[in-house]
């Protein structure tokens, strides 16, 4: 049997090869490019300009807004690496975020007149 196999393989190399257990996660950062490209089933094989425009408009905040990091994220390649690869977003010891540096959704909301009235009247203005 073994001899037969050897003889057969001497004459023919199967196209199917055992490549071993897949280890993609271990080599992921180096091999996978996440830069947006056209979907393989897209008939036009192009992406609308809005994809690049949206990404170039997107900004990193806090510690990710680091000039040395941004230099590696030149226009058009934002999205190449996952956010997690950019490093921790925790500030260094002694560093603090300023709320205005964060996206708008984290900003303090302006006081409404109803709220001001509620504070000034001790809540009485809320009573119908």
């Amino acid at each position: 049997m073994r001899v037969t196999t050897v003889l057969r393989e001497a004459a023919r190399t199967p196209l199917i090869k055992f490549i071993g257990k897949r280890t993609i996660p271990a080599i992921l950062p180096a091999t996978v490019d996440h830069t947006p490209t056209a979907h393989p089933a897209s008939p036009s094989q192009t992406l609308p300009d809005s994809f690049a425009a949206y990404r170039s408009k997107a900004q990193q905040h806090g510690p990710l807004n680091n000039p040395s990091r941004l230099s590696s994220l030149s226009h058009g390649v934002i999205g190449r690496t996952p956010g997690s690869a950019l490093g921790p977003i925790k500030p260094n010891k002694g560093e603090f975020f300023d709320r205005v540096e964060l996206p708008v959704r984290f900003h303090r909301m302006p006081w409404t007149q109803a709220e001001i009235d509620a504070v000034e009247t001790g809540g009485a203005s809320l009573v119908p």
Binding site: P40, A41, S42, L47, P48, G79
Partner: peptide
């Protein structure tokens, strides 16, 4: 819906799969 190779729309946290995008 137009998507890239990782099913992302232009807003990368919104993905599209199945009949409402490319492919059979």
């Amino acid at each position: 819906l137009v998507i890239d190779q990782e099913y992302r729309t232009k807003a990368s946290h919104i993905r599209v799969i199945g009949d409402c995008t490319f492919g059979p």
